[in-house]
Amino acid sequence: MRKYRKLKITDKKRWGNNYLSLFFEDKEITDKVFPGNFFMIKVGNFYKNILPRPFSIARVFPEKSVFEIFFQVVGDGTKILSEYNEGDEVEILGPVGNRFPVNNDKKNILVAGGRGISPFLYLSKILKSENIDFTLFYGGKSEKDLMFKDYLSEFDTIFITETGDFGQKGLITEYLPEGDFNIMTCGPDIMMKKVYEFYENSDSSVFVSLEERMGCGTGICYGCAKKIITPEGVKMVRICQEGPVFDGGKVVWDE
């Protein structure tokens, strides 16, 4: 049976600008987790913040059975989680959710906006180890919104900032190559929508990782549903159960 398990925080890193990483050691998870998957974490303080929160997988170091959760403090839940320290335990369920579909025949393009870099940290490592051709585009407002620079220097990474204080200057969509690719993107809805529209009339396929306020993470509450085009028409589809990764062409973007 799948269940919430108590895992000890083995390491913690503050990145500045309210970004944090928490590290855990668990072979069961590192053996099966794949980019796209996420975890539900009980943030504690049960009687104020009762709902578990979803967090994407970030880096994975399978040889040490270590995985990382990377997040920005944006609300109550992430605030509480940011106050945990090395040695503290949290309850974690997962991995849950589907995977980004890697394509071996086309070049893979990864497009990350801000904290949407999470799933592509491990995906880059997997693609490199399997000799699959890819480029990562990673954009943020300014240099302090771009993390993992050392780690990402091992891969074909193009950094883009709106201010231009690091990497290329401008918006990520100004740097995307035209052609026939397998595109995978994670970040703000508006960015993913623009990425989708950029490739809409090409042979490229675009896969997006959607976010929505979530209740259970197990498919029972229907709280996280969004409009998705299905063979039976537009339906409210659960992000946690059928997603979070969807074909961009099936997303109703004007929500």
Binding site: M214, G223, M236, E255
Partner: peptide
């Protein structure tokens, strides 16, 4: 189909 998001 239920309500649009956000639902909770």
């Amino acid at each position: 189909s239920g309500n649009p998001s956000p639902r909770i």
